[in-house]
Nucleic acid binder design. Sequence first.
DNA 1: ATAAAAACTTAGACATATCTAACAAAAATA
DNA 2: TATTTTTGTTAGATATGTCTAAGTTTTTAT
Lengths: 215, 215
Amino acid sequence: MISFTEENYLKSVFHLSNVSSEVSVKDVSADLGIKMPTVTSMMKKLAAKGLVEYQSYKPVKLTPRGQTEAALVIRKHRLTEMFLVEHMGFGWEEVHEIAEQIEHVKAPALFNRMDEIMGHPKVDPHGSPIPDRHGKIMSRKLRKLSELSEGDTFTIEAVTNSEDDFLNYLNQRDLSLGTVLQVVFIEPFDFSITVRYKDKETILSKTVSDRLLGE
Amino acid sequence: MISFTEENYLKSVFHLSNVSSEVSVKDVSADLGIKMPTVTSMMKKLAAKGLVEYQSYKPVKLTPRGQTEAALVIRKHRLTEMFLVEHMGFGWEEVHEIAEQIEHVKAPALFNRMDEIMGHPKVDPHGSPIPDRHGKIMSRKLRKLSELSEGDTFTIEAVTNSEDDFLNYLNQRDLSLGTVLQVVFIEPFDFSITVRYKDKETILSKTVSDRLLGE
DNA sequence: ATAAAAACTTAGACATATCTAACAAAAATA
DNA sequence: TATTTTTGTTAGATATGTCTAAGTTTTTAT
């Protein structure tokens, strides 16, 4: 049996693994807002359960089983988010916090039913892929908006961050998944990008363009 | 902030208060499957928080605030059950366990949305009333089937127990909320009741007739 | 290469929620 | 009423998950 808390650590290591190749105790500590000694002891515990590989002073890694378990929690999170948006009328900026709680519910039938009702969706409301029942994740290689050049065209397919502040910022500018942008100008000084879409022209900071993924 | 665990104790005291006038530490212990010393110390804690009235060796009682908090948890439970049945195709025998977990989610918007979507239902799938946003419960005075006499007619409006075994028993006999029964015969020895409904005749034990409420 | 800084671990404390064993009070019974 | 049974409490142990303070290892910089 994997506890609530353990699930959160697994999720954190999983996410951090997708950001950089090595995951440190510090990274997990910062990500979860939990002090390093606590992380160290949890890593030992998870290692004893066969969910992470851990050696003192070395980076942390999920074992295959740890990966699967993490993916299954993420599956529950993303199915929930999608269900809240598609069947309960919530906005994509409202669902992260709720899903953060419901993801820990132990009731496979509930999540499989959501999956069925929605016709086995491939991605959640933020464009992140939903793992299947076995914890397998469909991986897509998307580019960041910040990697494009002037004149390029870009379709938003995912956001790397589900904080409501960021999503409200996008809402205000009428930016959502599927929006097609033209890169008009890249400011060499701070890499802010001027984009054109839907008869509008806006300047997006690098912070924003780093968080928008697409093709 | 009321913890998960504390919420379960409040619910238990609430439910037990509706069964008998006095609630003992033993009752709570038996209901939750938790040993008496643990219950004693939790009662002290809840008393310190102003949620129960507690004095050594005396029965336990919810304070008005405790009542409200308990009712709000029950609201979340019952809205969830109703939503699972009405909008996700679950049977009334499947939803208790799932709702038992979701009731602890801290997200008023989620439950208010369920409530809206369903058009503010008055009762859950087992016929129990759903408290309003302020913790007020609509109380109906229903009779037990076991209180009727031969020749009486009875409409099932609620069941006092949501265990899946019991509900599957009712499913097998095609008994559900709204079913109208005629009391044909009451066996004086064990109080089992012969009832007629939908062209069928069945004998229900006192255990069963005690759990069926209606008019 | 050595000193300083950053990252990590160990040790020990604390809060929550649980238990068992032993004792105390209240209720039931003889 | 006295004794037994039931109910309830106290005391102390255990597990989980958190923290701070202090010390260690690794990395970075001088």
